[in-house]
Amino acid sequence: MKSLAPLFVVLLSAAFAPRAAHALGQSEVDAIVKELDERQRNNGDYKSLVYIEQKEKNKNDLIYQAVVYRRDEDDKLMILFMQPKAEAGKGYLRIDKNLFMYDPTVGRWERRTERERIGGTDSRRADFDESRMAEEFDARFVATEKLGAFDVAHLKLSAKKGVDVAYPVLELWVDTKTGNLLKQQEIALSGRLMRTSYYPKWEKMHSPSKGSDVYFPKEIRIFDEVEKGNQTLIVMQKVDLSSLEANMFTKAWLESKSR
C-alpha cells in the first residue's frame, strides 16, 4: 500500500486539477475515497486522548474523556473511558467484526452492534476507528459544490453487499484543494438522513511505521438529524503513534485497568 501512496496523490491532483464544475470520472472518485482512507491509516499503532461531549434537548450533557487505542494492521480497536469517575474503567473492544463493551460496575462484557452509541452519545465506533470507506462502500460522483468558502466534491457512497456498517449510504463533501473530508452525512436504508458530521480541523503527524504523514480529524461535530437539537463533539486532545503493548487488545487487559 505504501508504494501506492504517491500514485493516489497524482490521481487526486489529476482529479481536482481543472477545479471546474464538470463531473469527475469513476476512477477519480475512487481515488479520492482511497486517499481519504490512506491518509488516515497508520501501519503501526495509534493512541489518542479524546474528549466526547453530547448535548441533548432537555437532558443533562454527557461528557467523557477516553483513550482510543488502535492496531489497524490487526483490525483492533479499544476505547477506555478515563473520566468522569462514574464512567472510569468502562470500555469497548473491537476485534474483527465483534464489538464488546465492558462495564467495571458489574464486571461483565456484553456484545454490541455497529449501531452502538458510544457512551450513549451520537458517536459510533467508526468515528474512532480506521477509515475503511473504499473497502466498505462503492462511491459515485454527485457534483462539485461550495461548502462555506471551500470548493468541495460531493460524493455518494453505498455500502457493498454483505458489509456490516452503521448506515448503508454516506454522502461526503471533500475539499478539492487539500483532499480533506469536511462534511459527511449518513443515511438509513429508508433514505432518511440520520447524522451530519463536520470535520473542521485536521492535523497531520509523521508516522515512523508508515514512513509518511498520518492525518486525523482534530475535531468532529456530529448533528443528529432525527432528534434535532442533539449534537456530539469529539476532540482529539492528544495523539501518539508509538508502538503499544503487544497483547493489550484483550478483554483481560481492559479489565485489569479497573481492578
Binding site: D151, D175, P200, E203, K218
Partner: peptide, 9 residues
C-alpha cells in the same frame, strides 16, 4: 478564507 484546515499538532 477557504485556506487549508490542516495543522501540525
Amino acid at each position: 478564507s477557504g485556506q487549508s484546515l490542516v495543522a501540525a499538532p
